[in-house]
Computed example of a mutant assay.
Amino acid sequence: MFRRKNSSSNNDESVEQQHERKINELRASIGPLSGRNLHYCTDACLRRYLEARNWNVEKSKKMLEETLRWRSSFKPEEIRWNEVAVEGETGKVFRANFHDRHGRTVLILRPGLQNTTSIDNQIRHLVYLIENAILNLPEGQEQMAWLIDFSGWSLSTNVPIKSARDTSHILQNHYPERLAVAFLYSPPRIFEAFWKVVKYFLDTKTFHKVKFVYPKNKDSMELMRSYFDIDNLPTEFGGKATLQYDHEEFSMRMTQDDVKAAKLWGFDKNQSNGCSGAEVAPDPECLAPPVSG
């Protein structure tokens, strides 16, 4: 009798109430937070990890803790534009000056404009721009959109498989539910062989967010236009706008955003005392455990 009553009371919970309970369970399971972790692990953050693991608290906790360790060593919130600016000289990855129809930040990727050989620096550059895209999300929006232009792409400019694997791992494991959609615009036939390998690095959720768009395919172009205002969308993606990347102007925007990021993470107050606040275990002086992605 008791069991029936208890089960019926669980059924009486709305989906939102169930989710709220799971968020509280996850928060309790990760224990007390301080420093950057406290700032980072908002309810919205915990919700993303739970969504990524189908609301399984134990799996979400494992995922979150792995991210905290990664952020503790990689320190993505400490990367500054001047450290990665050389990677951006050709405009191979940059934040667009428009949003999609849902108000999401848009990153434009042009792999054909690859200009460096250090995979580590390339990944730092991309992580910096993911953090920057998040920094520039409007109130109430959690996700970004990617537009990938394959103009000039060839096997010689191709991202090595290891780099593609590392990038997909970081995106889906340390930035869960941050990507809403990625449009691969007019990829060449030769890309299909590369894609057959890369898709095995993607989990099911991420895989379904990747959309192939071909200019001569009416349905795929309609899908594109359902996400973007045609007047904002660059001609390279089937729109009417002119895409111009000005490295000097973009660098000024990023430098201004670095000031914004420093304020957000408290670096403007704390950096001088040497307390980074991103350790995996609480430091007796800094009292700052790990940060979540």
Rank of each mutant, 00 (worst) to 15 (best):
G293M: 05
E192G: 01
Y214E: 01
H19W: 02
R178M: 08
N217Y: 06
V280G: 00
D43C: 02
S220D: 06
S186F: 02
T167Q: 12
L223E: 15
D120P: 01
N24Q: 15
S292T: 13
T157E: 10
A278C: 11
C41W: 03
I30W: 10
S8H: 06
A52T: 00
R165H: 14
E177V: 03
D246W: 06
L38G: 03
L179F: 01
E78C: 09
L137E: 13
E142N: 12
R95H: 09
V291T: 14
M221I: 04
N82T: 05
D257F: 03
I134E: 14
W70C: 00
D100V: 05
E87S: 13
N54H: 13
E87K: 07
N6Q: 11
S156I: 11
M63A: 12
M221A: 02
K199A: 02
V86G: 07
P188R: 04
V57R: 11
T90R: 15
R3S: 08
G274A: 07
T206P: 01
L202Q: 03
L243S: 01
K240D: 00
G112M: 04
E192C: 01
L107G: 06
E77Y: 03
P282Y: 09
S276R: 11
P176S: 07
R95A: 10
L38V: 02
L287S: 05
N173Q: 09
N10A: 10
E87T: 06
R104T: 05
Q18K: 15
V197L: 15
N10F: 12
N136H: 15
G239Y: 00
Y128L: 10
L33M: 12
E131P: 07
T255C: 08
N217K: 08
S156F: 10
E236H: 07
R95E: 14
F267D: 15
G277K: 08
E58V: 05
L64M: 10
L264N: 05
G277I: 06
S14Q: 03
P111W: 08
I230P: 00
D219T: 11
S118F: 04
I161G: 01
K199V: 11
I79K: 09
R69K: 13
Q244R: 05
H125L: 02
